[in-house]
Nucleic acid binder design. Structure first.
Lengths: 220, 220
DNA sequence: CATTTTATTTTGACTAATCAAACTAGATGG
DNA sequence: CCATCTAGTTTGATTAGTCAAAATAAAATG
């Protein structure tokens, strides 16, 4: 069985590689894992000799099929736990990411399957992040961020691309959660601002980096 | 924060010391922790220099107040998790001990408090083992085992002193669970047998070591 | 009481994961 | 095309937790 450290590296490589193309540079991995670069290199070498990643010195790292499989299991556990914490134990969605970081390494398949069943085989977690099925498949939905979707058309929020509690509390306070309706009113390139209106016509202005974190359904 | 290894040692010392008097010998600790004796000695020395245990070479180990406090928190987490797994996720009581061994080190106070609230501040876990309150207090109930309680008087099972899945499955199959009624019909010293009758007058014979694991309420 | 047995402690070694700091390969740019 | 900068790699150490096996203390036994 992989250690929880190994699980964390594989999950991290998986999630970071989503953003970028091809190989994940070691510096990015080290930063994401909060370790010094040398530590990441050392770890990646052992992952590589276990055939969990492909490593090319001075280029970067990518997951093998075996590594992807483990990463997806960890992501699945993480997201199902988040949902359990919100829906069953009533924690706030801003706190569950941190809690799930520890629990994801401690739940057995048996328990995760019960959670999955009890929650009705959910497809997404409280932030709208998709939950891989036991065999690693996703139900993928087309999305666009508030920074690029058409204006004046009401959309439904489907996903928030940030786990930071402060951001999530802000989003919650303003009704920016999966399932909520939102319309982009205007965008201004030079001020970098996106004006939106939420339920009850409430208006709100976001910077584009925040707007980029909020995904809505692609076809209205 | 103590590592999960440290938590395990403290919990183990706490639980093993329940049975015995005074100091727990290193051999017993090593056996209970599944490590070689030298490992237990080394660990206990570091616990001792952290003032979590009292250690006397070639005599044994006992918990300090600080050590007891940590041990009780771990026991509390363990037992609340067991109850959650049984009552909310529907796992069988024979499997939850093992699951909780890992989870007890991964749940935060925040989560454990939600679980406690959601379960209605329970006093005992699925095996009847008492759950310490956040400040380490127990609701203690007088009990006797089936090996020593008066005969012919119906009693209520309150606790099972064994976490072995096989034993628990056997007990479950025969209705020997907390809350169930049971009467000791007869005992025989030489054959080491305890004959009991369960609900619906079903008869059953236990060896005295099994009888000793089943506790009933003291005053009928 | 001398001897053997058993429990415990010591010593030396190992693995996983980490950091600090020295080093190096490539890219950047004058 | 050489010098510099930067990202990445190496090396040497450290810590926690462990085992194997040698050493020793205490208890049990003849």
């Amino acid at each position: 069985m992989p250690s929880s450290t190994v699980e964390d590296y594989l999950k991290c490589i998986y999630l970071e590689a989503q953003r970028r193309d091809g190989m994940l540079p070691m510096g990015a991995l080290a930063r994401a894992m909060n370790v010094v670069p040398g530590t990441a290199t050392a770890m990646v070498k052992t992952l590589s000799s276990d055939r969990l990643v492909n490593y090319r010195a001075r280029v970067g790292v990518s997951l093998t099929d075996a590594g992807t499989e483990i990463a997806l299991q960890v992501v699945r556990r993480h997201r199902l736990i988040e949902l359990l914490l919100v829906q069953v134990l009533g924690l706030d969605w801003s706190e569950v990411h941190g809690e799930a970081e520890a629990l994801e390494h401690a739940v057995s398949d048996r328990v995760i399957d019960r959670i999955d069943a009890m929650l009705g085989h959910p497809r997404v977690d409280p932030h709208g992040d998709p939950i891989p099925s036991p065999d690693g498949a996703f139900a993928l939905v087309g999305t666009v961020s508030l920074a690029e979707c058409p204006r004046k058309v009401p959309r439904t929020i489907v996903r928030i691309l940030d786990q930071d509690p402060d951001f999530l509390l802000f989003a919650e306070k303003n009704g920016l959660m999966p399932g909520q309706k939102v319309t982009v009113v205007s965008r201004d390139k030079s001020s970098d601002a996106v004006e939106i209106s939420v339920r009850k016509g409430k208006k709100l202005t976001l910077g584009s980096s925040a707007a980029r974190k909020i995904l809505v359904d692609e076809a209205s």
